[in-house]
Simulated assay, not measured.
Amino acid sequence: MRTIRVLPVLAAAALVTACGVQPTGVVLAGPGPSIRATAGSNVAGGLTLYFVSDGRVVPVTRPTEGFISPEGALTLLLKGPTEREAAQGLTTFVPTELDRVDVHPGDPTTIVVPVGMRKLSDQAISQLVCTTIAASTATTRAPITPGVNVTSVDGKGYFPFCKAD
C-alpha cells in the first residue's frame, strides 16, 4: 500500500525538476518569418518584383546576388514571370510591346514608358510603380514621396501609388 502512495509523489517530483532546465525571460531574436518580402530589391538576397495573381498585384521575391537597380528590376519585370512563377499562377499585365522603361531618379522617381497610357491597365501600372518603389527603397536614393511619376510618349502622365496586396 505504501508503494502505491510513493509512486505519484515520485512522478510529481520528476515533473517539477524538468531535467534541470531553468526558466528564462523573453529572448529577442529579430523578426519572425514571413511568406514574402515587400520592402526593397535587396531584401535578404532577394529582389522584389510585382506580378498578377487572380487579378491582384502581388509581390514576388527572387533570389539575387548583390544590388539590383530600379532599372534592372524593371528589366526583369518586363521579361515576365519565370516558368516556375507562371506554374504558380502568376502572370503579367504589362504589354509585351513594352520592351524598356526609362527611370529618372528623384523625389518622386519618374518612369517613362514608350507606349501610350491607354495600353497600360491599372494592374500594369501598379506592377511598374510597385517594382520601382521596391527597388528604389533598397538604394541610398530612396524616395520620400510614396508614389512615382509615370509618363508616356503620348504626353500623358500619372502619379500613382503602389496598389498591391
Rank of each mutant, 00 (worst) to 15 (best):
R100W: 07
V60I: 10
L47M: 07
T3L: 15
R84G: 11
V21M: 14
D99F: 12
V26C: 11
R84D: 13
D99P: 02
F51T: 01
G25Q: 06
A73R: 02
P33D: 00
R2E: 15
R36I: 09
T48I: 03
G20D: 10
P70K: 08
P70Y: 13
Y50S: 05
P95T: 02
D54H: 10
G55M: 01
G89S: 04
V43Q: 08
R2T: 14
A12S: 11
E97G: 12
V58S: 02
I35G: 14
L7P: 07
G40N: 05
G66E: 03
D54P: 00
L76H: 09
P63G: 09
A12G: 11
G32F: 00
L74N: 05
S41V: 05
Q88K: 12
G46D: 03
V6K: 14
G106Y: 05
P81I: 02
H104R: 15
A86F: 06
I35A: 14
L49F: 02
A73K: 01
P59A: 09
F93W: 07
G106S: 09
T24W: 00
G89A: 05
A13K: 09
L28A: 12
L15Q: 11
R36L: 12
L15M: 14
V57M: 06
Q88M: 08
V26H: 15
P8W: 02
R5I: 11
P8T: 03
R84H: 12
I4M: 11
R2L: 15
L76T: 10
T96E: 13
L90S: 03
A29D: 06
V101Y: 06
V21P: 13
S53V: 00
T82W: 06
L77W: 01
L76Q: 13
S69M: 08
T64C: 06
V21T: 15
V101H: 06
L74A: 04
S41F: 08
V6M: 13
A13I: 11
R100K: 13
P95Y: 03
V52A: 06
V27F: 11
F51D: 04
A37W: 09
T24K: 11
V94W: 02
P70H: 10
P70N: 07
V16M: 11
E71V: 05
A13T: 13
V16D: 07
P59H: 08
V58R: 10
V27T: 15
T91M: 07
Q88V: 00
D102R: 14
T3Q: 15
L76N: 11
F51E: 01
G89T: 05
I35D: 14
F93V: 02
E65H: 08
V21F: 15
T17C: 13
L98R: 03
D99C: 12
A11C: 14
T61R: 12
L74I: 09
P31R: 03
L47R: 04
G66K: 01
S34V: 11
D99S: 15
L76P: 06
